[in-house]
């Protein structure tokens, strides 16, 4: 299957899995801070693990291009973030890294692409658990939180498909897409997910959960 099609179908499936985050509300109408903190920590670990795997795979192409793209992505997200924390800005902050990760990974081989899509899908569920808790607090119904959680990842599908298509048209862009994914994934974890995790629960449990999630992803994702 064409990697662009894999990116489109895979990122769409990953976006839809985010709605599973609302299932947590069936067990508890109001999620405790600990659950939200751990969900964000797990999401952080998965993103850092994905960044590590993409970096390891991408270094074989062009380290300088990758680093330049990573720095450009960080600078861009930083500029967007400075503009204000509107819903649109937060949406862009989250969609770009995850979409770029899928768009780049599908060009590193079908198994790796599928693995990255699965990792982002699981990450989306943990991220959605935290989001659904916020939405429920604002009075949204469980079904509405499920739709909004999936919809909030629509940008991910667009970025994944666009970045994969760009590499298809201009193969020399692959290290740039991979570098941008690594830089933006790391930036998102540091600017949003980890600070929110630390606010909810103790730093030791956050550190352990984040590292465990990262280690599992790295261990499963390394070749051989």
């Amino acid at each position: 299957m064409n990697p662009v099609a894999v990116a489109f179908l895979g990122s769409s499936a990953a976006a839809l899995t985010a709605s599973a985050g609302s299932l947590s509300l069936l067990f508890s109408q109001r999620l405790p801070g600990v659950a939200i903190g751990w969900a964000n920590a797990l999401a952080s670990g998965f993103m850092l693990g994905a960044a590590y795997l993409l970096m390891s795979a991408g270094l074989g192409y062009s380290a300088w291009a990758g680093a330049a793209a990573a720095l450009l992505a960080v600078a861009s997200l930083h500029a967007v973030d400075r503009a204000g924390r509107s819903a649109l800005v937060l949406h862009a902050l989250h969609s770009a890294p995850e979409g770029l990760a899928i768009g780049g990974a599908v060009w590193l081989g079908f198994p790796f692409g599928i693995f990255m899509i699965a990792a982002i899908a699981i990450h989306n569920v943990f991220e959605a658990i935290a989001l659904c808790g916020d939405l429920r607090d604002r009075g949204a119904s469980v079904s509405r939180t499920a739709v909004l959680a999936a919809g909030s990842n629509s940008g991910q599908v667009a970025v994944a498909t666009l970045s994969a298509a760009l590499v298809w048209l201009f193969p020399f862009l692959l290290p740039w897409v991979l570098g941008a994914a690594v830089g933006s994934l790391a930036y998102l974890v540091m600017v949003d997910l980890l600070p929110r995790s630390y606010q909810e629960i103790g730093k030791t449990s956050i550190s352990l959960v984040t590292l465990a999630a990262m280690a599992i992803l790295v261990l499963l994702g390394i070749p051989g």
């Binding site: 970096m55 270094l59 380290a63 680093a67 990573a70 720095l71 960080v74 930083h78 973030d81 400075r82 690594v182 830089g183 790391a186 930036y187 540091m190 600017v191 949003d192 600070p195």
Partner: peptide, 16 residues
């Protein structure tokens, strides 16, 4: 957080 994030990610990329 955005200042911390900027310093962490830039130094991480440069280190790699």
């Amino acid at each position: 957080a955005r200042a911390v994030s900027l310093f962490v990610t830039v130094s991480l990329v440069l280190m790699v």
